[in-house]
Design a protein around this nucleic acid. Structure first.
Length: 476
RNA sequence: UCUCGCUUAGCUCAGUUGGUUAGAGCAUCUGACUGUUAAUCAGAGGGUCGCUGGUUCAAGUCCAGCAGCGAGAGCCA
């Protein structure tokens, strides 16, 4: 039985005879193997007596090779590690041709590793990122489970295109070269697999609302698809989203739920990923040193994470934010590309960044947006000008969470749907929630990859998902 | 989709006002050394300068188109 390196480093007894399996990171001095098995960021040092080892075997111990080693765990004579494994028997399980293996014992650019996404799990950086990603996913489930939520599997294929969250990917098994057409020349979707036009889901919210109207508190956590031609470091065509939906809850409860979730997840990562976060922290500090003083982040990674757990997020209304922005120096000096003149304007990235990174210097929750710039299902406030929407903005990330209290009044909702040009007959099942036992309820969407970005300090969203899907890119 | 930038060895990059045979570090290979931690020392191999076309006696270098990648913006999570 071979042991995990994580367990050996944590509890391995000096003098014990053990076996390990892993991949060679480096082989120094014909004598020292750095072995990693993915269980931890740390490597186990294997000591080889090259005088007693077959030369042909030594030549096969190359970067990337999979090996099995048995021997005795000793206290290390070197200063880099406490214990090391003195090899008695080494087996090469899988060779790795050093002339061809792309991952070298040297620094690689993130772009290069992205092109080699199938091999990047073998680097310290990406193994750390994906271990953190795992723990954050566990934290999501733990938070909701402890609060009595039920995990709802919303459908991935949907025939509803009224969610308005973005462009959709069509799902069909019709022959795209010669689809069946009706007399009017239009494609006849009655002959398609579902008997109607279908797409990949852009949001599980509407289905979440249906479930919340019986189960009370539910959340979804699954893949979500947007066919937008977005080419940024913050968008993916396929990403994972968490969408809780709660009956009998207003916008303030919604904010508490979201802020609590973010703090819980960040604390969970601090508790469960200390070694990986330490590595990411140091990596980021190295990177910051390369940057000019002005562009440097005001806080190192772990301090920033602790700050976001310990401090209240700044809550303010859209109208208050507009006042701050209208009177702020960059607006007065004309530094904004989109100057703020008054109520009604949608906030651009530059405005959100000013509020979060310059003015408040902490996460910000904005509520009560003008009703025209938000989705049809958000509840109209008493002023009839704003809706009970909330966005949580994070430094360096932008919008982490978008949520709202839902419009529970049937007549108001129908009127809004007319204003937004949403065909009522297609959404009858949704309107039934307002016809039968309607009540104030609320929910939000959290972009999982954006949370992973924030916690790991990675600056490109394609580096926190195993295999990124983005415009013109569907490799692996 | 828009704006800007980049594309030179396996990787990261340098390459002057256009001018002989395009360089460095790392990696790889060979040898030496053998308690290393990005090991060290000596040597070697490695290039269709993204693609297509143009200007010129002469193009890695200038121009145009295309492609890919990146940064920012829009859309949003």
């Amino acid at each position: 039985m071979s042991l995990e390196i994580r367990a050996i480093l944590a509890t391995g007894a000096v003098g014990s005879e053990i076996e390990v399996k892993g991949w060679v990171r480096t082989f120094r001095n014909n004598q020292f193997i750095s072995l990693n098995d993915g269980s931890t960021i740390h490597n186990l040092q294997i000591v080889v007596d090259f005088n007693q080892t077959d030369e042909a075997l030594l030549k096969r111990i190359t970067t990337g090779a999979a090996i099995s080693v048995s021997g005795v765990l000793n206290e290390s004579q070197g200063s880099g590690q406490k214990v090391e494994l003195v090899a008695q028997r080494i087996l090469v399980l899988g060779d790795s041709d050093p002339e061809k293996y792309p991952i070298q014992p040297k620094k690689h650019s993130l772009e290069f590793l992205r092109e080699n996404a199938h091999l990047r799990f073998r680097t310290q950086l990406f193994s750390a990122v994906f271990r953190v990603r795992h723990h954050l996913a566990m934290a999501i489930h733990k938070y909701f489970d402890e609060k009595g939520f039920f995990y709802l599997h919303a459908p991935i294929i949907t025939a509803s295109d009224a969610e308005g969250a973005g462009e959709m990917f069509q799902v069909t098994n019709l022959d795209v070269n010669k689809p069946p057409r009706g007399e009017d020349g239009q494609i006849n979707y009655q002959e398609d697999f579902f008997g109607k036009k279908a797409s990949l889901s852009v949001s599980g919210q509407l289905q979440g609302e249906l479930a919340a109207m019986g189960l009370g508190k539910v959340y979804t956590f699954g893949p979500t698809f947007r066919a937008e031609n977005s080419n940024t470091a913050r968008h993916l065509a396929e990403f994972w989203m968490i969408e809780p939906e709660v009956a009998f809850m207003d916008i303030h409860g919604d904010m508490d739920l979201a802020e609590g979730l973010l703090k819980f997840c960040i604390q969970y990562a601090l508790d469960h990923c200390a070694d990986d976060l330490q590595f990411l922290h140091e990596r980021l500090e190295q990177e910051e040193k390369q940057k000019p003083q002005q562009e440097r982040s005001p806080m190192p990674l772990i301090d920033k994470l602790k700050f976001c757990v310990e401090n209240e997020y700044q809550r303010l209304t859209y109208t208050e934010a507009i006042e701050i922005l209208k009177n702020c120096p960059p607006n007065k000096k004309g530094k904004f590309q989109f100057p703020i003149t008054g109520f009604g304007a949608d906030l651009q990235s530059e405005h959100e960044r000013y509020l979060v990174e310059k003015h408040f210097q902490k996460p910000v929750i904005l509520i009560d947006y003008p009703k025209e710039i938000k989705a049809f299902y958000m509840r109209v406030n008493e002023d009839d000008k704003t809706v009970a929407a909330m966005d949580i903005l994070f430094p360096g990330i932008g919008e982490m969470v978008g949520g709202s209290q839902r419009e529970e009044r049937l007549d108001v909702l129908i009127k809004k749907m007319e204003e937004f040009d949403i065909p009522q007959h297609e959404m009858d099942w949704y309107l039934d929630t307002r016809r039968f036992g309607t009540n104030p309820h609320a929910g939000f969407g959290l972009g999982f990859e954006r949370l992973v970005m924030f916690v790991t300090g990675m600056s490109n969203i394609r580096d926190v998902i195993p295999f990124a899907r983005s415009p013109r890119n569907c490799e692996f």
